[in-house]
Write a protein that binds this DNA or RNA. Sequence first.
DNA 1: TGATCGTTTGTAATCGATTACAGAAAACGA
DNA 2: TCGTTTTCTGTAATCGATTACAAACGATCA
Lengths: 339, 339
Amino acid sequence: MDGKSPKIQDVATVAGVSTATVSRALSNPDLVSEKTRELVLDAVKRTGYRVNRAAKNLRKRQSDAILALLPDLGNPFFSQILSGIESVFTTSDLSLLVSDTKGIREDNLLDYFMDMRADGMIILDGAIPRDVLTQMQNSAFGNRIIFACEWKPEFEFPSVRSDNFGGAVQAVEHLHSLGHRKIGHISGPRNNVLTKERLRGVESAMEQLDLTINRDFFIDGGAFSLDAGAQAARSFMEMTERPTAITCGSDLIAMGFISEISRRGLKVPDDISVIGFDDIEIAGSFIPSLTTIRQNRTQIGVLAASYLLDQLANRLPPQTTPVQQVDVKLIPRQSTAPL
Amino acid sequence: MDGKSPKIQDVATVAGVSTATVSRALSNPDLVSEKTRELVLDAVKRTGYRVNRAAKNLRKRQSDAILALLPDLGNPFFSQILSGIESVFTTSDLSLLVSDTKGIREDNLLDYFMDMRADGMIILDGAIPRDVLTQMQNSAFGNRIIFACEWKPEFEFPSVRSDNFGGAVQAVEHLHSLGHRKIGHISGPRNNVLTKERLRGVESAMEQLDLTINRDFFIDGGAFSLDAGAQAARSFMEMTERPTAITCGSDLIAMGFISEISRRGLKVPDDISVIGFDDIEIAGSFIPSLTTIRQNRTQIGVLAASYLLDQLANRLPPQTTPVQQVDVKLIPRQSTAPL
DNA sequence: TGATCGTTTGTAATCGATTACAGAAAACGA
DNA sequence: TCGTTTTCTGTAATCGATTACAAACGATCA
């Protein structure tokens, strides 16, 4: 009350108890008697006391912060996941740190833990070098990591992800139900897990439906970007025989593709049906509006954050490294039409 | 070296000096002799020492973190600014905290400082309640805040922003040079500074060029969103007389607008030229690709972060509350055409 | 030579919480 | 009533750095 911000000692004095009791009353209320607790709480209110986090963190060897690691902060795809993550953390007064994986090299990921800058990590990038992850897994911090969206198949970290396989299946089934039989696919970055899952889904669904898989109709886009789609469109134009419908590894690919073939005189969905993946915000307003597989990105963020919180609070059975799959949903719009 | 992570005392022992000397050698090298410095640096290397941030921060009353406050984490527009901010901070080992302004009420913004969770703030939201800002300005932390993109005209906080006025002027001049004389505008959220600046720019340019300002051609979009654009399109369709070209408060508005009028049979740019503002990633691949005013969002982030860093390090004259304007640039594409 | 000054170093206090340990008080059982 | 256990509280050590203060040292100069 005298200018400086009050410390625990001030509260103790006002309440007429020791600092230990104040500390306990605040962070472990069961340990003090009802009467003392009220005394302390009242003193806290009167003094306007707030715990000093640096002091608390120093003593408890923690940081009250979680790091979200994105492959590219500039990529809008991730912002919605971040939003989900943040919504969980604000309610439990943890801070959300964000960083680009571009800045990550060698061992400085582990440093976040060593430096006590973060208590846990949510990794949104499946392309973290293997040895970095090995190092993390072998450290004491291995259980403070969760993957979201992407993941590393060869590691045992828990993860939250969309049902990528199922989404691709739905896409193919949708096209099939519209009468399409010659179906192609434009895939994303080569070694990406999402690329693989979605491709696998397309192939599996086509087999299920007894469709002939024509390898020429499968284009390696090499990225999830608009450019990749435009590039794929150029290959597409050169085909002698063309598919009547095409599934894409991402909405951006689909839009880049549509954009480029439109420029070259083809019409969507008249000449070819196109379906995306993600349902990014713009998908509904693209022209033509894009049929796509909606990923619930906010939910992915929420689930990942909640899991990590439980894990850090030791509220989970230690052995589990679960994979949580989030359902996806086909959103039919105007980029697909009956054959 | 013996399992636990080494502390400053260990380094001191190895180097044969006191902890004070080690501390000085690391954070204030000029204070120790050449010889000792080498001794210490060598010992640091041998022990693998890293300073404990919690301890350092407790003692120095700081947090080594900066908070970025976004109006909506789920909005992709901001991710690129974040990227710029982050690129600056990683090089100076500050952490980047992010938070949604939705979670902000009453006084808990100041709490970030009181709790020593952040040393500074970059605010990307012009809609922070006035009394919250007044409180901040009057506190000891008033000089640790900078606005980016948006700002509060009635406060004296430093800010980094695009040349919104100039951008709008360029847009009108572009349309004028294409022969358009009947020019309209769809504006963004009502009380937003960007909305006002851009509107002002449009009006000013039209006056300069001796164009008649027809109030009926100015539509209040009410937001920067796709929906706002679509909504505006409906008003547009009902006009008896229509402008031949329209400037929009944002790319999303422009796209929503184009999307909706296309659905109703109008063609862009044949029937009407449309120009956006922002140059978001998708703008170039929209159909038709969108003529727009490019904001250098990364640079805004970089400038804001750098300024804040300098300010915190006391490297700036104390009195300055500068406004840094970042140039914008017209990107001509296919949504605008000669009359 | 001794006074004076600047440079370099060490000692120990400090930042503000948490918590191990021990002691006091209350509750309980016989 | 007297142990014994349980509940509650206080003392003081601890987390690991920074830095005020003082001392030691060497250089400089009259």
